[in-house]
Write a protein that binds this DNA or RNA. Structure first.
Lengths: 164, 164
DNA sequence: GAAATTCACTTGCATTTTGCAATCTAAGGA
DNA sequence: TCCTTAGATTGCAAAATGCAAGTGAATTTC
């Protein structure tokens, strides 16, 4: 294997350990693609709009798999295609991703529509429950469509019920 | 400046934008050090136990400052020393860090005592409020002491009151 | 008040990780 | 059969990282 770094000599702090696994510019983006957009294949990740190189993509998928965050299964309908899917450990990243989303939308310039973000902030529990539901039912409908500068992007989760 | 990378050509997704700023192995660790451990000086970060190189540390502090997450102020008592402090934007990362901490403690092998993590999980709002209080009052007492394999590490936040 | 120490960096250099384009293999389709 | 598609791997240049050493200003020690 050419890439896939070796372990770093760091502390046992959960934050530190987590960053060893996910602390780079791509890994959490792939988790987002799977969790929020319903992407499953190499191709979909590749065309995700962020411009990841194929060697890096292959490496990250491998690392996520090695880290127990992602599992691969052969696609039934097409022998060439592999489906990547979050594991229970992977879907448990939903709260992390949601907080990142909320923070980013608040403090950075993004294409996210404020209304949708506010709604998610008010209904964290519902957003996470809906993400988990889609994962359980293998529902590939995007929870949140990709943000385009011009999109109306209606988000797709039910209202009501507060966090946890 | 030798380091401090240029902007990447990526999407306007809040997650993506956030990862451009914080998506590396060190940045969030420094935020953790400031928020949770009360560290303020270059030396403290350096001896934080994770073994960051001084050039990388200098670069990350600079980037965090450029990103509006950290501010620097001259230490009153010692003209050599600079104090780094989170900005409002920086302290707003508390929920992100907390979710990472909880996730890591659940799914990775860490030195975090399960009891303390469970307590934080049940009292997210209190943990975040306490972190914010310490920040406002410039109270450098660690909210959570560094995890050593052998430590009893009592965490330091009050119980009661649920999230938000 | 001279020398030693501390703090916050910076520099040089080797190693690792990225990014990019091209290529490869196996499966499917025409 | 030949062509296309999915999922990679390879080579190479560029950038980021890790490491040891050095710098200069402010403080402490003698």
């Amino acid at each position: 294997m050419r890439n896939s770094s070796k372990v770093k000599p760091r502390s046992g702090c959960p934050v530190s350990v987590t960053l060893d696994l996910l602390g780079d510019r791509w890994s959490l983006l792939l988790v987002r693609d799977m969790m929020v957009r319903g992407y499953r294949t190499f191709r979909e990740f590749q065309r995700s709009g962020e411009g990841i190189a194929t060697n890096i993509l292959a490496d990250r998928l491998q690392r996520l798999e090695a880290g127990g965050i992602v599992m691969r299964e052969a696609a039934k309908l097409d022998g060439r295609s592999t489906h990547y899917r979050l594991t229970p450990k992977g879907i448990a990243l939903a709260p992390v991703l949601l907080e990142i989303l909320i923070w980013g939308a608040h403090y950075e310039e993004t294409d996210a529509p404020c209304g949708a973000i506010d709604a998610m902030e008010q209904n964290r529990g519902a957003v996470i429950a809906e993400a988990r539901r889609r994962w359980e039912e293998r529902d590939p409908t995007p929870l949140i469509p990709p943000f385009h500068s011009a999109s109306k992007s209606k988000s797709n989760f039910p209202k009501g019920e507060s966090r946890r």
